[in-house]
Write a protein that binds this DNA or RNA. Structure first.
Lengths: 138, 138
DNA sequence: CTTGACCTTCCCTTGACTGGAAGCCCCATG
DNA sequence: CATGGGGCTTCCAGTCAAGGGAAGGTCAAG
């Protein structure tokens, strides 16, 4: 299989597949003409990576997950711990974003949004807040 | 005011303040010794930027917001539109993360997390899913 | 005079790719 | 046999919003 086929079948861009080789996540063979030559196992790994990335795992976490996957004597507890840590990070991000959403929603509701210059959103950003609740979140 | 004071008072790292000057968001004067010399207006702008960034606006959005802030004849509708677009993006991100959270939570719940190698999380990532609901999200 | 804190510029690194240029390789058509 | 097009290769640069650190100038205190 050439990279184009693998790209189609895995859903990953060819660029991304080359990048994954660069950073040592996969090691496809080469044909005589220098083309990368993928076997089913490579495709399988790429699919694994694609799914892990879609779940938000970082590349380094993916590397660990792959190592665990290939280690027949792994402890499922190690995998679970990795997944739990990742879950915590995701939940923290969600909380951050929800806080932003709340503040923004309030501000948007307070703004007339017409052709007049008076704007509570800008006032808030400038620190001349008219809303009692709003605080800066570093 | 030197950069250290401004950093303390604005809560932004000195590096960030220099960066903001680099990209033209602020234009502090210089003292004879070459040190940046900030006035209250600069501090004010930096606080504005800090708050806008804390709400997740990109640097370019901040640039627009600052321009609107400084434009006495702005229409609050323009500000509101910017904020609304940003709000949409935040909501989209939250939705993505929530989908990840759901999938991960399920997977974590299915995993015994002990010393045995059998692991539904890895199975799912490998595409040998045991959960009927799980699908790959590009 | 020296020490230490503060400031300057400059360049490199981050994460996870993406874009583009320059140049092979291979197959099919004229 | 030339040529055209698509696919493949490598390498370099850019993204976003800074952060790290080196090399060196400045200033106030002791």
């Amino acid at each position: 299989m050439n990279i184009g086929d693998v790209s189609t079948r895995s859903g990953l861009p060819a660029k991304t597949i080359r990048y994954y080789e660069d950073i040592g996540l996969i090691k496809p063979h080469r044909s005589n003409n220098g083309y990368r030559c993928f076997v089913e196992a490579d495709l399988h790994k790429l699919a694994f990576l694609g799914r892990a990335r879609a779940l938000g795992f970082t590349i380094e976490e993916c590397r660990l997950l792959m190592a665990l996957y290939e280690d027949e004597s792994r402890a499922s507890g190690d995998v679970k711990q990795l997944a739990l840590e990742h879950l915590r990070k995701i939940e923290a991000k969600i909380a951050d974003l929800q806080a932003m959403r709340e503040t923004l929603t309030e501000l948007v509701q307070c703004c007339a949004g017409d052709s007049r210059p008076d704007c509570p959103i800008l006032k808030d950003l400038a620190g001349q807040t008219e809303l009692p609740k709003q605080g800066v979140k570093a």
